[in-house]
Amino acid sequence: MQRVRHNRLNLALAHAALIAYTIIALFPVVIILINSFKTRKAIFRHPLQPPTPDTFSLIGYETVLKQGDYLHYFQNSLIVTVGSLFFILLFGAMAAFALSEYRFRGNTLMGLYLAIGIMIPIRLGTVAILQFMVATGLVNTLAALILVYTASGLPLAIFILSEFMRQVSADLKDAGRIDGLSEYRIFFRLVVPLVRPAMATVAVFNMIPIWNDLWFPLILAPGEATKTLTLGSQVFIGQFVTNWNAVLSGLSLAILPVMILYVIFSRQLIRGITSGAVK
């Protein structure tokens, strides 16, 4: 009986601590969102109050949508993220298949070579990457960003996917070979569908860092036509230091797409992490 009471107390304490931390985690986001819908006066007088009919205002959003090219930035970010994920998954799965399926000389060495990039950040090569992009004329193109993110996402993708591909039954593949399927067909028709959950995990892991990156857009594609949402909002918000309505609305518009993606993919993300895909 005493034990039960003791447990209840512990649970209550755990809830209290978790609620407190949840408030700390969400407070800044909520403050930004509610104040973005308020008049300038209300933002300063009652920053902690949600907008009321009296204080409600969309003036910030009007400024942002009139002057900032958010839709265009959003489109750039989408192209870069989707493009990079496509190549990470395609090239990563192909390489993972080669490493896990065939025995050839240098297999282990190749695996190690491709694994270096898991620990060494690609940013350290930035100086030379920029020279490469200048030499190939890719500066200020979205292709430059896609190439860089593909290269940096591949090592972990290959590592995770080859672990999963080792678990695909050899009998199945051999049956396919007896039926006369080519190696390519075995890969695309038999193996890829079976490792689709692992591919989704890889995609979700790579998605957020690519979407949020500031370093490479700033260095490789700072032009107006190729600005991603992260860089675009950084520059745009930086211009409006004194226009609080615009700053708050600009921030809210930058938060929105990530939140939508998170709501859609959070299950996949959490399942991916907790299933021990990264060890």
Binding site: F91, I116, I120
Partner: peptide
Amino acid sequence: IFLAPAVLVYTALMILPLFGT
């Protein structure tokens, strides 16, 4: 053929830039 695309992109943009640096 399975290895080529990954190895090419990775070598060109990850390993060579490190040596370039």
